[in-house]
Write a protein that binds this DNA or RNA. Structure first.
Lengths: 232, 232
DNA sequence: GGGTAAGGATTGTTCAACAATCCAGCAATC
DNA sequence: GATTGCTGGATTGTTGAACAATCCTTACCC
């Protein structure tokens, strides 16, 4: 391990062989969920799903467990697994946690690694280019990646994982928004603003901007959410 | 649902019927891990373990998944599951996340529910009584419960879960401490101090105290940790 | 109408088997 | 002598079928 590039190999090694069938089935299901084709509340019967996915019930159950861990599915004992349905309270709780995590990231922006800053910039650029090309779902992913990069400024693997899970969870609520374009468009500019504030060293201003940003996004989302699910 | 105690029953209902064999096997393994009998790095062979636990390989694998999610085990594809070994970097990262979460709890102490405050008090009292009775492992659990209660002041289920997982993870490192008594004893008083500051409404002082508290605990733990695992 | 019992459908769990992969040990080569 | 290549045994990954336990619906009875 004296050569520097050997440690690079060692670090990236994990992604090479990781390919269990259960993980691949989980990928398929995740895709269906985050694109909104699998509606929250839907029950996923083991036998039927196993047949169409051409995997045994056991491995399918293992895939379920992976997605339950990501909070995309819920597992009720002796009743089966369902696509998670978020309550308005869940959305509020997620935004509360996001505020804490992302602000923590901005506060440690001064000591952030160049790679982390580059990821921040790349995410914003990706969003702008996707908007120019009219690829609005891609704008959505870029936005999520931006917020992950904000938290990533802290350089903490655990904080990264936390925000990753929160954002994955949020996708369950995004589909209640009528148009992804109207939802994501206003935030493109604000993301760029935040990046420039961070680059300029004014993390206090960036934090204020981000908090206001999250507030409006939260109320917008919750309003659309409660309109769709009367009461609850 | 007009009776108040009915909602209590409804809230606690989930734990009644939740009794899959996999969960119970996971409980057994967790016990062995947090008491330190199962040393980090140990490999858990499926066939052998399934025989002694008298469960099939499939359900054992399900138990493994549960503990992998709790970060007590790690799962390497085609190689098996191992008891997680924390690096000094892991410990530092855990404390970083704890600082963020627990301070967030203290900051919302003013708006915390009476039940959350009661839990805080109960945890400290439990620790003091356990110390008086010379039950030091119990002091340890009381301490963990205290920190969970601190975060619980925020009243956020997700923050609660995050800190729960972090503290569970941390137990993997506790066994490197030679004596649980020497490690936990000094913190009994500081816990009480923090509770009184919170009760008095001075959450700023409580936060400063807690941060100092966590700093010393972290350095103490990491020092003992690096002494035991030379290099790494 | 409301409670109840039977029935079917689905999940929980086990078992046995085979394929895929890893790993330690040994042979071959330079 | 160290590295490479191979081989056999052990362990994990995955499958399919079977049975028990549980839930849900339907029909029945009072």
């Amino acid at each position: 391990m004296t050569q520097p590039w050997l440690s690079n190999i060692a670090a990236e090694r994990g992604v090479l062989d990781r390919s269990s069938t259960a993980a691949r089935v989980a990928d398929l299901l995740r895709e269906q969920i985050i694109t909104g084709l699998l509606v929250p509340g839907t029950r996923l019967p083991e036998e039927e799903l196993g047949k169409v996915a051409k995997v045994s019930r056991n491995t399918l159950r293992e895939a379920f467990r992976l997605l339950v861990q990501e909070r995309l599915l819920v597992h009720e004992f002796n009743r089966g697994v369902f696509v998670r349905t978020l309550t308005a309270g869940d959305v509020a709780d997620i935004y509360r946690a996001r505020r804490m995590l992302e602000c923590e990231g901005l506060r440690s922006a001064a000591t952030a690694s160049p790679a982390a800053l580059a990821r921040l910039d790349a995410a914003v650029t990706m969003g702008e280019e996707a908007a120019a090309a009219d690829l609005w779902p891609r704008v959505g992913t870029a936005d999520l990646r931006f917020h992950q990069a904000v938290t990533g400024l802290a350089g903490s693997p655990r904080l990264d994982e936390m925000v990753y899970r929160l954002l994955a969870e949020l996708r369950l609520a995004f589909h209640t928004m009528s148009s992804p374009r109207d939802f994501h468009a206003p935030y493109l500019k604000r993301n760029r603003t935040i990046v420039e504030m961070v680059r300029g060293g004014d993390s206090g201003a960036a934090e204020r901007e981000l908090l206001d940003y999250l507030d409006t996004a939260e109320t917008q989302l919750i309003r659309a959410y409660e309109a769709q699910t009367p009461d609850a």
